[in-house]
């Protein structure tokens, strides 16, 4: 009973009540922004090997990415929200990947596709590949498989949408909020 009264007291007679209203407004705007972000994820396709072949059906009719807002419109990093890194990343390619990644506007999301990008995969003992791209860039969602099926791309986008909704994506956690 005492707790309930305290809560009531807090709710109605807290001195910084204006701040709460402001925070709620901020939260509201953030929710609206996240709603927009998660329902219109334009991808940048960074395909270097066989996973890119599985990425192509993701945009075609059978596994239709358009209905989730993932439109394969023009591969430009300047208009992309997320990057689909599909394929083995060698150490020479890692610089090019980061170069492209840094051109993307914030907030940016990363999906690592395939065993090579999760842990090194087939090339776990190689001298010339990056063993998991989480070593060089923040990754939101990993898709295992060698290569994964196109349906798993859809699953990854669903997971990413959930992360954005809950403010748990790397871009929202690591960087300062835009607001």
């Amino acid at each position: 009973m005492e707790n309930d009264e305290e809560m009531k007291k807090d709710e109605f007679s807290y001195p910084g009540m204006g701040e709460i209203i402001f925070m709620k407004t901020e939260k509201f705007i953030e929710n609206v922004l996240n709603w927009g972000r998660r329902n219109s994820l334009w991808p940048l396709t960074f395909g270097t090997s066989c996973c890119a072949i599985e990425m192509m059906p993701f945009g075609t009719t059978k596994v239709d990415s358009d209905r989730m807002g993932v439109l394969f419109i023009g591969d430009s990093p300047r208009q992309a929200d997320m990057i689909l890194v599909s394929g083995t990343i060698t150490k020479k390619m890692a610089r090019r990947l980061l170069n492209v990644y840094e051109q993307m506007p914030d907030p940016k999301y990363v999906i690592a596709v395939g065993a090579c990008n999760v842990s090194g995969g087939l090339y776990h003992d190689s001298y010339n590949t990056i063993h998991g791209i989480d070593k060089i860039m923040p990754v939101d969602v990993f898709i295992p498989g060698c290569p994964p099926r196109p349906e798993e791309f859809m699953d990854a986008v669903r997971v990413l949408q959930k992360l954005i909704k809950e403010n748990r994506s790397k871009a929202q956690m690591d960087h300062e909020r835009i607001l």
Partner: peptide, 16 residues
């Protein structure tokens, strides 16, 4: 010899 040092070498100046 492929050591761990060679495997983890990226040659990158990472910011994050």
């Amino acid at each position: 010899v492929v050591t761990d040092e060679v495997r983890n070498w990226t040659g990158l100046d990472l910011k994050f």
